[in-house]
Design a protein around this nucleic acid. Structure first.
Lengths: 237, 237
DNA sequence: CAGTGGTCTAGACCACTGG
DNA sequence: CAGTGGTCTAGACCACTGG
């Protein structure tokens, strides 16, 4: 705060200050922060202005207020679980000891007409293609076929996917700003049945996934789960 | 507003007034509402108090503000399309000419142990049970079995479901504040296969749905879609 | 120009909490 | 009791919009 940001309203400056104190760990979860009166003294503003900063952060669930007691740093939010459907890509992580995978395909290819259109490429353009089977506790839980836009993830083929999953790598080089899913029940073909190690041809959950980073499509994937696999999605309105 | 609600703060009373004006259609979408100054005169409060009411409603996206211009009734929210998965209940509407349904079951029943626990009832308590098949263009697109908490929708059995769908009725008496979905691929049993008019036993999409209104569970449903049915879900991060 | 919303002040009274 | 957050007032100055 040594250098004042003239363009920012004072309540916003105080918000930034409080945010920084929390993010830097100076004010820990559950700790009491200065009162409105104290902040108004510290920042030489009226109590109403200090209050506004604190109140807006409370509205954002960063702080918790209790009349008579004070204002406290709130528990970290459980990441607004609007939709756990994303989780099935995130739960596949090498930091998870039960996780493993098998790379079936990892190649450069040329874009077929339909796929080119979706990825925003021209027919015949270079693209990357991968097929990976994901296991949890040595049981196959997902067959993943993925077409990747090489303009966005140029080094996709050169990664070591025994250390990081393809989706994790993509999310790192081009964080998804939008993801679209289509869910269907399907009967898997022989190739997929074999890859998933299914004893019989039983119904599977097919998820078609398209991810964007900004206005560019990063990848399109076809994900097949054994029918017993349950996809959770929670929506809080 | 003829009878003042003494326990409610004045800014909250003004919020209620504005909300009512909008919901009753007195103030239509896009119309300008009274200025802060006008409201402070009308309600005999300071401008800061009138402002608080308007500002909080703007934060809730019910109003739109523009400096120098005024405050306007905002476009109805497109229900934050975090997840179009909800749509499959909303797209079933009698205002849709291609839509029709068939009521297979609509009865009072007693709660089996598991269902009672989920609905927050005791085993043997009264509950409502319905089974409805939904058609689009005379093709069955969903088999819906629903258990309803009678404390929340006491008149559930008495509605005319050729005019309003069960879900629409529930959403009207107890707007869902939270909905949870579980998606699985399953093979339907003979009863469902018959009800959906499937020629062969083919894989179906099963959606288990639980909805809350406040802290109470309104209903739990089992929805079965033919495998060809595609469930869309779009997630904007 | 008069009117709008955005920011801000320096006070006030209240119900509530802990010691 | 002194301190907290919740509500509220009667002013103020500002940048901005339209006519």
């Amino acid at each position: 705060m040594s250098q004042a940001i003239y363009s920012l309203p004072r309540y916003a400056q105080i918000k930034t200050y409080i945010r920084n104190q929390i993010e830097s760990g100076q004010w820990k979860v559950g700790e009491r922060i200065p009162s409105e009166n104290q902040l108004s003294v510290d920042f030489v503003v009226s109590r109403m202005t200090a209050r506004r900063a604190v109140q807006e952060l409370a509205d954002e669930n960063l702080l918790q207020r209790a009349p008579g007691l004070g204002t406290f740093v709130a528990e970290p939010q459980i990441a607004t679980p609007v939709l756990e459907i994303t989780d099935f890509t995130q739960q596949f992580s090498h930091s998870n000891p039960e996780y493993s995978n098998r790379i079936l395909v990892l190649e450069e290819s040329t874009a077929e007409k339909n796929i080119a259109a979706v990825l925003g490429l021209n027919q015949g353009d270079q693209l990357f293609h991968s097929v990976v089977v994901h296991y949890r506790d040595s049981a196959a839980v997902q067959w993943e076929e993925c077409y990747v836009n090489p303009q966005i993830a140029a080094a996709y083929l050169k990664q070591n996917y025994s250390k990081v999953t393809p989706q994790a790598y993509l999310n790192w080089v081009a964080p998804a700003t939008r993801v679209e899913h289509q869910v269907q029940a399907v009967m898997p073909n022989a190739e997929i049945t074999g890859a998933l190690g299914l004893q019989t041809i039983s119904s599977c959950l097919k998820v078609s996934r398209r991810s964007w980073s900004g206005d560019k499509v990063v990848s399109i994937s076809k994900l097949i789960h054994p029918g017993s696999y349950s996809l959770g999605a929670e929506l809080i309105i």
